[in-house]
Amino acid sequence: MALPASIGTLKLILPEAVHSNLAIIATCLGVPAASYLRQGLAYLRTTKSIAWRSGMLLFGLMFFYIFTLSVSARAGISLAGTSGLINIPTAEVISDQQVTIGIGYVNRYAAYLERGRCDNFPFYIVLGYLPRLEFSAGVNFVPGEKSYDGTNTYKDGVVSLQFLLFKERKFLPALALGARDIYSFILLNTSFVVASKTIIAKPTINWRLHVGYGSDIIDQHLGVPKKDRHFPVGHTIVGPFGGLEIDWKRTVTYLLEYDTRMINTGIRFRWLRYWQLDILLLNMEYWSGNLSWSFEL
């Protein structure tokens, strides 16, 4: 079976491994699914080696699985690996049974860890553990800073919880409580309450306002040897914070926030319903980014 012209042209310039998966990937992209899948499988039949065919089929099926089993991510994920804008939390949680995996890049001049010296790369997994309760765990990688394990990349574990107390009503905002970095050696802690309200709701454009307050009431390290318990705790968002998001068709969102230290802005792209890419300008100056992918258990 002949491949469509566009894919056939690509065959000339792309490695075979990439090309043979295009049809299957095209399926994932939502274009004529069955047709492209058939063509992808037909193309696999034309290749020579059984091992190659099997490998390509497996690779394609993996893509197919990843894309088709995913769900829409209602809540945006912040750089801290919890529902939020850029740094600040919002009164949202990801849906029950949803998992979001992501990685961010924080420019060294806007980073919370080793500011001015090292870029931060937060890696996180967020889980809708219960309805309205979001559990997040992650590691902040700080390349260039010596670690306790002898490597040249410092690693800081982060565990966070966020609970949606009230959903948004017609005249009442949604309200959420949460705490970030609450266990083990705490460097990026904040305990917060945040309210979110849609102020303009139109079919294509939504304006949403977020206002909250972050506290430093957690002043001891939990789950560490007693000698380390009273070592100073690091806090991130302490005081009033707020933000605004302007959302266009739940595809492109403009973000603006004040996180008690900086004013940040950025654009959030959502595509295929389950991918999220944030292109950010922290402190209105330093380029950063955040990429995440969601699926349902």
Partner: peptide, 23 residues
């Protein structure tokens, strides 16, 4: 313990005299 279809994910915490909080 929470079950997501057949996937089980649980957490535990221990408090006693010698330990603050073990998870």
């Amino acid at each position: 313990v929470r079950l997501f279809h057949e996937i089980e994910l649980g957490f535990m915490g221990v408090w006693n005299e010698s330990l603050d909080f073990l998870t």
